[in-house]
C-alpha cells in the first residue's frame, strides 16, 4: 500500500508557517476556506485573512490592489473558480502588470470526483500557461507542495499552484524532494523511453515504469512539476537519450503538459510522442473509477509507452 497525503492540507499548514516568516503575506478566500485549508491561516493570522464569498472576479482584482501595495496575496479557492471564472481579471489585473499574486487552487482535475464536470478543472493548465509571465506549478505530492508554496512566496511575480482534492501518493521517499522552479526532476532513469508527468500522474507514471521494467523496458520518469517556465532542456535531453516520450497529466489533452512537450519536441528535437490525458469532459463518480474510465491509470500509461516504442523505429 502506497503512503498518501493531502497536498491541500500540507498547503494550509505551510501557509501558516510562511505567514509567520513573511509579514506581508495576506490570504484571500471565496467561502471555500475549509476545503482549501486556509482556515488554518485565518486562525493564526486573522488580521491578514479576508473572505470575499464566492466572488472570484472581485477576489483577483483585490489581490492585484494588495500586490501593487507591497502585499503578497495568496488566493485560494477551487481550480475552476480561480482560473476560468476570473480569467479576465487574471489577464488584465494580474498578468499584464505582472503583479505578485499567488494563486493556490485545489480540486484540480477529475480527482475532484462526485461533484462532476462543473467542478472538475481540466482546462486550467492551458488557461494559466497562456498568461505570459505566470509561473505554473503542479506539485507531485504533499512534500513538493510545501516546497512549491515556499517558492511562490519567495519569488516575485504571478504564480499558480495546482492541487488535488483527495490525498495522493507520496512520490518523494526518504531522500526528500529537490524542488526548483523550472527544473524538472528525474525520479527514475531509463534508456528506452521517457514518461513526463505532472501532479497526481507522477505516481501513476512510476507505477507504469515499474510494470514496463518487468517487461525489460527501461523508462525514465520525469516529474515536470513546473509547466511554465518549462524545462525544455530536460525534454530535449530525454528525447536525445531515450528517443520516445509519453506525457501523462490529469488535464484536457489540449494546452497542458502534453501540448507543451509536443511543442518543445517539434521545435527542437522531433521525437515520437504519446499523450495520456483527458479527451473531453468527464462525469460524477468516485475518483478511482473515473481514472479507470477515462484512461488515466498506470496500465494506460504503460500501454502508451508500448505504442510509442513501436513508433520509435
Amino acid at each position: 500500500m502506497v503512503a498518501t497525503a493531502s497536498s491541500r492540507e500540507a498547503y494550509g499548514k505551510a501557509l501558516v508557517e510562511l505567514g509567520r516568516e513573511f509579514p506581508n503575506i495576506v490570504v484571500l478566500g471565496g467561502d471555500l476556506n475549509k476545503s482549501t485549508f486556509t482556515t488554518l491561516f485565518a486562525q493564526e493570522h486573522p488580521e491578514r485573512f479576508f473572505d470575499f464569498g464566492p466572488a472570484e472576479q472581485n477576489i483577483l482584482g483585490v489581490a492585484a490592489g494588495l500586490a501593487m501595495s507591497g502585499k503578497i496575496p495568496f488566493v485560494s479557492t477551487f481550480v475552476v473558480f480561480g482560473t476560468s471564472r476570473a480569467y479576465d481579471q487574471l489577464r488584465v489585473s494580474v498578468a499584464q502588470p505582472h503583479l505578485n499574486v499567488k494563486l493556490v487552487l485545489t480540486h484540480a482535475g477529475i480527482l475532484t470526483g462526485e461533484d462532476g464536470m462543473s467542478a472538475q478543472g481540466i482546462e486550467d493548465l492551458a488557461l494559466m500557461c497562456a498568461l505570459p509571465g505566470f509561473t505554473v506549478v503542479v506539485p507531485a505530492d504533499a512534500a513538493e507542495t510545501v516546497h512549491a508554496v515556499r517558492a511562490a512566496a519567495e519569488t516575485q511575480g504571478p504564480f499558480y499552484v495546482r492541487l488535488s482534492r483527495p490525498a495522493t501518493p507520496l512520490v518523494h521517499g526518504d531522500t526528500g524532494c529537490s524542488f526548483r522552479i523550472g527544473k524538472a526532476e528525474v525520479l527514475r532513469d531509463g534508456r528506452d523511453a521517457t514518461i513526463v508527468a505532472c501532479g497526481s500522474m507522477v505516481a501513476t507514471a512510476l507505477e507504469a515504469a515499474q510494470t514496463l521494467q518487468s517487461e525489460g523496458v527501461g523508462c525514465r520518469v520525469i516529474n515536470m512539476h513546473t509547466l511554465a517556465p518549462l524545462d525544455e532542456e530536460a525534454v530535449v535531453r530525454a528525447a536525445e537519450e531515450t528517443g520516445a516520450l509519453v506525457t501523462a497529466e490529469e488535464h484536457y489533452v489540449h494546452g497542458g503538459l502534453g501540448s507543451l512537450v509536443a511543442q518543445t519536441l517539434a521545435l527542437h528535437h522531433p521525437t515520437p510522442l504519446e499523450m495520456v490525458a483527458l479527451h473531453g469532459y468527464a462525469e460524477s463518480g468516485k475518483p478511482e473509477l473515473l481514472l479507470e474510465k477515462y484512461g488515466l491509470t498506470a496500465p494506460y500509461v504503460a500501454q502508451a509507452a508500448r505504442r510509442v516504442l513501436r513508433r520509435k523505429g
Binding site: 491578514r48 501593487m68 501595495s69 479576465d88 481579471q89
Partner: peptide
Amino acid sequence: GQGLSFGVGAALAGRLE
C-alpha cells in the same frame, strides 16, 4: 469593472500598513 476591486485591495493594504 475591474478597478473598484483593485481599489478595495489598495484600501485594505493601507489599513494593514
